[in-house]
Amino acid sequence: MIDRQLRGVPAEDSVILRDGVGELLGVRGCRVVASAGTAVELIASVEEHRPDVAVVDIRMPPTHTDEGISAAVEIREWTPEVGILGFPSTPRPSGLPAPGSRLPAGGAVGGGLPAEGERVARTDEFVEALRRVVGGGAALDPGWSPG
Rank of each mutant, 00 (worst) to 15 (best):
L113V: 10
G68M: 08
A129Y: 01
V15E: 07
A98N: 14
P10S: 01
R119L: 00
S89I: 05
E23P: 12
L96T: 12
I16M: 11
E12P: 02
A139N: 04
T123R: 15
G100D: 09
L17H: 08
P91D: 01
T90S: 14
S89A: 12
G100P: 11
P93R: 06
G143S: 11
A71T: 05
E81G: 04
S70V: 09
A139S: 02
V109D: 10
V27D: 13
V40Q: 14
A36T: 05
S14T: 07
L42Q: 11
R102E: 09
S101W: 10
E48F: 13
D57V: 00
A44N: 14
A129P: 00
V33R: 04
A44H: 10
T90L: 08
V120D: 01
P142V: 02
A138N: 12
R28S: 10
G29M: 04
P62R: 01
L113P: 07
E12Y: 01
R7C: 04
R4P: 05
V32F: 01
P146L: 06
P104M: 09
G100A: 13
V82G: 02
V109A: 15
R132A: 09
D19M: 04
S145P: 04
D66G: 11
G20Q: 09
A72Q: 06
V55A: 02
D3A: 11
R92V: 05
A108C: 11
P142E: 06
G100Y: 09
V55S: 05
L24G: 07
Q5G: 03
G29Y: 03
L85I: 04
E77F: 13
A44C: 14
L42F: 06
S45C: 03
R59D: 09
P91E: 02
A44Q: 15
I2S: 03
A98D: 14
R131C: 06
G147E: 11
P51C: 15
G8R: 03
P91R: 00
A138V: 13
I16N: 06
P88S: 03
V46I: 12
P80T: 11
P142Y: 03
L85V: 03
A54L: 15
P91G: 03
L85S: 01
P97G: 12
E128K: 03
H49L: 13
I58Q: 00
G107E: 04
A108F: 07
A105P: 02
I43L: 14
V109G: 14
G68R: 13
Q5M: 08
L6C: 00
E47K: 15
H49F: 14
V32N: 01
R50G: 06
D124P: 12
I16L: 13
D141I: 02
A121W: 00
D57E: 07
P93M: 08
A54D: 10
V133S: 07
A105N: 08
D124H: 13
G83M: 07
D13E: 00
S45T: 09
R122N: 06
G8D: 05
P51A: 12
P99G: 07
R102M: 10
I58M: 01
V27G: 09
E48R: 15
R132M: 13
D66C: 11
S35K: 15
W78R: 13
V73L: 02
S35G: 08
